[in-house]
């Protein structure tokens, strides 16, 4: 016992060092995959307040650019209004439509804190569970996909952006509907890559990439970017498709959170699939 105390006293500095390291690394690893509370993230009330004050000053720096982007989006949407179209077939009959039902609604929000230079980048938005934001909702801007909600508090939420290690959004390369998974390697905030595309397929440069909408997080067809380069991976029959993102995440301000009104139905249905033991073994 005395030896033990002597040992502890002798190495107390190193032991405290190791303890602090273990605490911080455990927090890091846990929060990276699944945040247990809002208190160590920018979604917590105090930090988000401070960041809001800061954003109140800095948001004006990109104001004219953002206004222009919103105006352009307005034009695009206005062009679809029936009043702005010339009717080709006169004498249409109006019917009450029962074919379409609203599946997605959108919650507008503003970015109050962001980073693009780290390995895992997050955006903090000024909307939270009061506005109906929940974890695992999709987020996009007028130009393209932004990310998935990671953690929410009452008035704020943290979005795991496309620029993180395991974002894994399912996307398709448009004219031939090739589906793959979007990844980011941590180097360039303008470029990502798509995994899982077999190299016997021909892909045209600059073909559009949009979301697939399979998991119910994003609606189908939200732009992601364009194919910039196609490289072969050594020793694997796969292409490494380099994507140039449509959105410049460095100056992002206005975003929309996707609320899927039928997500519970989809999850309920998908939960009925019995777990495949062989597939679990392969993982």
């Amino acid at each position: 016992m005395r030896n033990l105390i002597a040992f502890l006293r002798r190495f107390q500095i190193f032991l405290i060092f190791a303890l602090l390291q273990v605490i911080s690394l455990v927090i890091y690893v846990q929060f990276l995959s699944f945040p247990r509370s809002q208190y160590l993230t920018t979604a917590s009330n105090v930090t988000a307040k401070v960041l809001t004050w800061e954003n109140d000053v800095t948001k004006h720096f990109d104001l004219s650019k953002n206004n222009y982007a919103l105006q352009r989006e307005n034009i695009r949407l206005r062009e679809r209004l029936p009043e702005f179209m010339y009717t080709l077939s006169a004498g249409k009959v109006k019917i009450q439509d029962t074919v379409f039902k609203q599946q997605y609604t959108y919650i507008p929000g503003m970015v109050i804190n962001s980073s693009v230079t780290r390995r895992n980048n997050y955006f903090t938005l000024n909307i939270g569970s009061k506005q109906g934001v929940k974890p695992n909702m999709g987020v996009f801007s007028d130009k393209g996909v932004v990310g998935i909600v990671h953690n929410t508090s009452e008035h704020y939420c943290v979005v795991k952006s496309v620029l993180t290690k395991d974002i894994n959004i399912d996307v398709i390369i448009e004219p031939i509907h090739l589906s793959g998974i979007l990844k980011w390697d941590g180097h360039d905030p303008r470029r990502g890559s798509i995994d899982g595309i077999s190299n016997d397929l021909r892909i045209k440069k600059w073909s559009r990439i949009v979301t697939r909408g399979g998991s119910g997080i994003f609606p189908k067809g939200i732009p992601v970017g364009k194919v910039e380069r196609i490289e072969s991976i050594e020793g694997e029959p796969l292409w490494n498709v380099v994507v140039r993102y449509a959105e410049d995440y460095r100056t992002l301000q206005r975003v929309y959170v996707v609320k899927n009104l039928m997500i519970e139905e989809q999850h309920e249905l998908e939960g009925l699939i019995p777990p495949d033991e062989e597939e679990d073994l392969l993982r």
Binding site: F17, Q21, F31, T41, V158
Partner: peptide
């Protein structure tokens, strides 16, 4: 550690700054 954790909270790095400052 204290300083690192405060900076972590503000930048969504969850303990990364704390670890390297310690």
């Amino acid at each position: 550690f204290l300083m690192g954790i405060i900076i972590d909270i503000f930048s969504n790095t969850y303990g990364l700054h704390a670890s390297s400052l310690v």
